[in-house]
Design a protein around this nucleic acid. Sequence first.
DNA 1: AAAAAAC
Length: 492
Amino acid sequence: MAEVTETTAASSSEGKKPAVPETKRLWSDEVDDEEVQPSATEEKAVSELNVDALAIDENTKVNKFLDEPEDSRIQAVTTGDTPYTSASTFEDLNLSPELLKGLYVEMKFQKPSKIQAISLPMIMTPPYKDLIAQAHNGSGKTTCFVLGMLSRVDPQLQRPQALCICPTRELSIQNMEVLRKMGKYTGISSECAVPIESRNNDRSKSRPPISAQVVIGTPGTIKRLMSQKKLGVTDMKVLVFDEADHMLAKDGFQDDSLRIMKDIQRFNSHCQVLLFSATFDETVKNFVSKVVKDYNQLFVKKEDLSLESLKQYKVILPDELAKIGVVKDRILELGENIGQIIIFVNTKRSASMLHTSLVDLGYEVTTIHGALNLEDRDKIVKEFKDGLTQVLISTDVLARGFDQQQVNLVINYDLPVKYENQSEPHYEVYLHRIGRAGRFGRKGAVFNFIMTDHDLMIMRKIESYFNSPVAEIPSWGSEEGFKVALKEAGLL
DNA sequence: AAAAAAC
């Protein structure tokens, strides 16, 4: 275990100068270490960034660029003159001893992941610029913003200072669990602002204002608490949007998110805004860059997003009955020892139908979607996380962010398509769904069910979009192809 | 015609 150095400061680094000792290496040094010629690097930085149309303001300068071939490439664009030092250890970050202890003892982390090494200094160095950060599924994004929130809280001040908004109740709860674990020794207080037992809403009116220092929750509840003056924003230092592309999309939570952001900024213009997601499509990317002003950004090319450890397959089958048959005979029978499985469907109805069919056939599966009551949702997620259930049928309520390391297989029982145009795949949802398997570089497999020519067309578009061919399992009717696939994926 | 959130 690493020792806490004597130079480690108290947890609040508010008002401190950016710490950049000469002994620490800048990113440009890393580039030198890799014997890349500086001029070539610079050229590459500019051209790649132009090609990818990162929506950079005209006054934005590309002054740092990071390119490590062994890792998926992350493009960093910073504005202004603030130098950022990539953190090779958590000690580099001037965290409080309590927070470091949480990272090592509770989280069992040894050193920052790639995205953490780059983003954490950007988050924690004054003047605390806004950040748009894209990183792979399962690469440790949550740690970035949770640590960011914890490190910026003034422990002496018993008021809300950091707020994180998530698209679902489940994700809010999961993020809160991470925060409490990581912050265990800091004494920092926290509250989860998500809907509770419906129809019991008199409780919310009589409740005292939130004094917790960190609040995590869903847009509706946060909005309500703010309008009821139960959630003060005057001391808010950090505002995080998890799954930010969805939170700021027109068909997502754009209105709520903007409202919350503006309400905070009205009282508190210097509240730092952090946007995290594995995906930012062009529309959202352009919109987002208008919402935040002076910001740093981290991006990954879409071809680099699908993890190599994840094997994708397509299964061509004739009808609904065959779909159910494949789940039953190929997945559930073969997959008994391959870890946990999530089956994604497009509608609540589809979820219920598949659930009933499989239960009628005598299989133990559980199902989650937004029409269930909150208690049941909590119970089903908890059972799955505790490993008590193996197979979970889900709508896109769990498509994003859901972190269960034992999930090795994801099935797209229905392919994700855009609601406004059914002949367009929903690329972002596809990526998020498959990212539920193979967390943090583990092995994993994805089976895509193809029933119609339309499905096939959707699948082809997905393959070409991510530039990753998806192997076909030769015959849905025989076991062999599935065995080979699962072996190839390292699961059998 | 949809998932979710919640008034």
